[in-house]
Computed example of a mutant assay.
Amino acid sequence: MEDAIARLIHGFRSFRNIYFSGDAELFDQLKHGQNPRILVIACSDSRVDPALLMQSAPGDLFVIRNVANLVPPCEPDTCHHGVSAALEYAVNALEVEHIIVLGHSDCGGIHALMKRTPETPAGEFLERWLDLAEPARRAVLEKLPDADEMTRRHACEEASLVLALENLLTFPWVRRRVEAGKLALHAWYFVIATGHLFGYDREHCEFRTIDPNLSLKTNKRS
């Protein structure tokens, strides 16, 4: 346990050496406020750190992380909405220009969603949270009734990303900025085993390889 904390402290020392000695100019700017152009909604999975995957510097990304990178629909009630609150701040206060919902392969949240039954719920809090992706699960089971478990799980990981894009548009201030051309929505899928990144192509309704120039190639994800 102490070794794990020691690694963090060592990492923080390196961070200070880089950004407060070697590149102090960056934090001289950031101490006055943040101005990220991109919001990333990512999974809490320890293997999928958006800043690390995209090699982003401090201040580049505004990040929301939760189990299975889910986006709730707009629900203006008296409950506590952490994702919606962060989304509202990013869109209305920071005026980000892009929202990327970043999913990944081998997602534990989606695995729990696909395995759950009334007799074996996913968990005390996780069960209710995963209800957000239930439409994706039902769609996959209907479309792929005879597929193996791994195929259906991957399909659900992708389907939940598309559902997240749909839920984003239920927020009036997101939809207004999208329709005004001031905000673009993206769904990206990272394959941990191969290091490949795929983006959702709305025109063809499928995920396609993202090349180094950030365009979508014609080959499908396999």
Rank of each mutant, 00 (worst) to 15 (best):
Phe207Leu: 03
Glu206Asn: 02
Thr170Ile: 07
Thr194Met: 10
Phe207Cys: 10
Ile210Tyr: 05
Thr170Glu: 11
Lys182Asn: 13
Trp188Glu: 01
Gly199His: 04
Ala184Phe: 10
Ala180Trp: 11
Glu206His: 04
Phe171Ala: 09
His186Met: 01
Trp188Val: 01
Glu166Cys: 08
Glu166Val: 12
Phe190Ser: 00
Ile210Asn: 06
Arg177Ile: 09
Phe190Pro: 00
Gly199Val: 05
Leu169His: 06
Arg208Ile: 04
Leu183Gln: 08
Tyr189Ser: 03
Phe207Trp: 05
Ile210His: 04
Gly199Trp: 00
His204Cys: 05
Trp173Met: 13
Trp188Leu: 00
His204Glu: 13
Val178Lys: 09
Arg175Ala: 15
Trp188Cys: 05
Ala184Ile: 13
Asp201Met: 03
Asn213Thr: 14
Phe198Ala: 02
Asp201Ala: 08
Asp211Ala: 09
Phe190Ile: 02
Val191Arg: 12
Pro172Asp: 11
Cys205Asn: 11
Phe207Gly: 01
Leu197Lys: 01
Leu183Ala: 10
Leu197Pro: 02
Val174Pro: 02
Tyr189Thr: 05
Leu168Trp: 10
Tyr189Val: 08
Asp211Thr: 09
Phe207Ala: 03
Ala164Asn: 06
Phe207Met: 07
Ala193Gln: 15
Ala164Leu: 06
Thr194Glu: 07
Thr170Asn: 12
Cys205Thr: 11
Ala180Tyr: 05
Asp211Phe: 07
Phe171Arg: 06
Glu203Gly: 14
Gly195Lys: 01
Trp173Ser: 10
Ala164His: 01
Phe198Ile: 04
Pro172Ala: 14
Val174Met: 09
Ala180Phe: 03
Ile210Trp: 00
Asn167Ile: 10
Trp173Tyr: 15
Gly181Asp: 10
Cys205Val: 04
Phe171Met: 04
Lys182His: 13
Ala184Glu: 14
Trp188Ile: 07
Asp201Ile: 04
Thr194Cys: 03
Tyr189His: 15
Gly195Trp: 00
Ile210Val: 11
Phe190Cys: 06
Val174Ile: 11
Gly181Ser: 09
Glu203Leu: 12
Arg202Leu: 10
Pro212Ser: 05
Asp211Lys: 08
Leu168Gln: 09
Asn167Glu: 01
Ala187Met: 02
Ala180Asp: 07
Phe190Met: 02
Val191His: 10
Cys205Ser: 12
Ala193His: 08
Arg175Ser: 11
Glu203His: 13
His196Phe: 10
